[in-house]
Amino acid sequence: MAISGSEREAFEKQLEAYVGLDIGLEDIGKDRVNAAMVRHWCEAMGDSCGAYTDPALAAESVHGELVAPPTMLQAWILGGVGMASDESDPRDKQKELHRIFDAHGFSGVVATNTEQEYTRYLKMGDEIRARTVIEEISEQKATGLGIGYFINTRTTFRDQNDTEVGWLTFRVLKFEIAEVPVAAETAETGAPSRPQRLRPAMAHDNQWWWECVDKGELAIQRCSGCEALRHPPRPMCGECQSSEWDFVFSTGQGTVHSYVVIRHPEVPGYTYPLVVAVVDLEEGTRFVSNVVDVDPGDVEIGMAVQATIELVDDEMKLPVFRPA
């Protein structure tokens, strides 16, 4: 539960003291604006503008020389891999503020939006530094993620002449993570943790067959009148019209009669590309199911396969084929 009453009042008063504060550290670009970093950025972003990467084209452009993409602004002062470290500079007021939130139960953090403005194009050799101010802390908000507070910061970028070249604002939500974790909630309701395959509809004529599958057997219906095997099951024999039947168990051995490789549409619960085959079982009936553990390109008509019954999702058993 979120803090309330006098505790909340004291907490929010504590927050107020941070509004308007410079975070106390200056971010200084580790490298001057340079062609190599620009080229890497452009490759990653798919930006082919010649003014960024082609000196000859850039010379003919309005810039007269190579410039950096404006949206790289923040890249020039980022801390690199070191940013992932848990250690932080004790002077960092922004981190200090976050720790206060953490201590009061608002340990979740998510970035929500950012805005940028550029004063001029950066040129090769520019040296960029930035200072950040905590601009605003919102009142308590109820969000989809939980109860929390939005923190707005504004970072101002300057060059080697201490002239402003742009700014960015950044907003994060510090929030109280829901008390009931998602996993526990689904365990309680019995909802599956991942999409499941479509279930067969069950009725008199087919339920017995699926019960055999659950016991690990691939059954084939057999007419008690003429002993003809038939699949899919039906209530009456098309050969002799007998309504009496029992069943035998297949060895699961067979050969691929035809097959498909399904690529579209992708239905949740199935893995694509999905191979489905019509298999001639050695007993003489056919059975349709997946061929698994095989490269789709290696499946061919006439290929020997063996069925085994296994779980194809959290709960459903299905006879599936593998190359024999």
Partner: peptide, 14 residues
């Protein structure tokens, strides 16, 4: 639907 049920579990549905 019983008919389609022979194919839905393996994903042969379109």
């Amino acid at each position: 639907l019983i008919h389609w049920s022979w194919y839905m579990p393996s994903g042969l549905m379109t």
